[in-house]
């Protein structure tokens, strides 16, 4: 890594309690190879201890540090400063959209968690449920573990909320389950979990989606919610057609 240093203006959204929101600029010297969260954490450490921001794992497994960076939803722990600004440039850091702001850069994501609970989204699932196909790796799929059980892995969805923030209809439909939740329902499949049909086959379920595919574009975790919502629609339609012909 080089010793290159950039000067970057972090324009940060600030809001306390009932106060009016405003923007505050912090000028930082950063390495372009650093991640955006490193800059935000340094603002807190060296410039303003009142800054409120969320973060935990710093490597995209927890989903806590989602923010809008120059208007686009990003997981800030894996967003390199080099990729989103230039030397002397600006980074506009704002909280996610479509969730209530608690303070500064932190939002209340209970909307997402309520939905994930509604569809009983599994946090850990068998490897075969979402295999790691197409990654050019050699996972030992055919070999079970010592005790004959299947490998388990943590679900791809890290519940970061970026997809709900990027969704253009989530802001005008507060009851909409949202991309992550519908993706979690699709992952289980209506065939295996038929009780999900009632939750997703409704106006605030799969039919609220207007196919902007912004969720897939911002997802940092290979979930592809846009595709999964469409596939869930296909499953719902197939189920309806089967019912018309007297099937189960």
């Amino acid at each position: 890594m080089s010793e290159e240093k950039w000067t970057v203006n972090f324009v940060v959204y600030r809001k306390k309690g009932e106060g009016a929101p405003h923007y505050q600029t912090f000028t930082l010297e950063v390495s372009p190879e650093e991640y955006v969260i490193d800059g935000v954490e340094r603002i807190w450490a060296f410039h303003d201890r009142s800054l409120v921001f969320a973060h935990a794992c710093h490597h995209s497994t927890c989903g806590a540090c989602g923010m809008r960076v120059n208007g686009v939803e990003k997981l800030t722990c894996i967003t390199r400063i080099r990729d989103v600004t230039s030397n002397g440039g600006t980074l506009r850091i704002e909280p996610l959209r479509n969730f209530p702001v608690i303070s500064d850069l932190v939002v209340d994501m209970s909307r997402l968690y309520v939905g994930m609970d509604k569809v009983h989204a599994p946090a850990v699932h068998p490897l075969s449920m979402a295999p790691l196909e197409g990654e050019g790796i050699k996972p030992p799929r055919e070999v079970p573990m010592d005790d004959g059980k299947e490998y388990l892995r943590l679900a791809d969805c890290i519940e970061c909320g970026l997809c709900i923030s990027a969704c253009p209809v989530a802001g005008t439909a507060e009851e909409y389950l949202g991309p992550a939740v519908l993706a979690a329902a699709q992952l289980q499949g209506l065939g295996r979990a038929p009780d999900l049909t009632a939750v997703v086959d409704c106006v605030d379920g799969v039919w609220r989606c207007h196919s902007a595919y912004e969720c897939t574009a911002v997802c940092p975790s290979s979930v592809d919610p846009g595709w999964r919502i469409m596939d869930l629609r296909r499953q719902v339609l197939a189920q309806r057609i089967r019912r018309w012909f007297g099937g189960a």
Partner: peptide, 20 residues
């Protein structure tokens, strides 16, 4: 209250990609 400008956000082209 959610952090949204409601209908205005439908038409805000900033940060939108092809599907958006």
């Amino acid at each position: 209250k959610p952090n949204t400008r409601g209908i205005l956000d439908w038409f805000d082209p900033r940060g939108r990609r092809v599907g958006g």
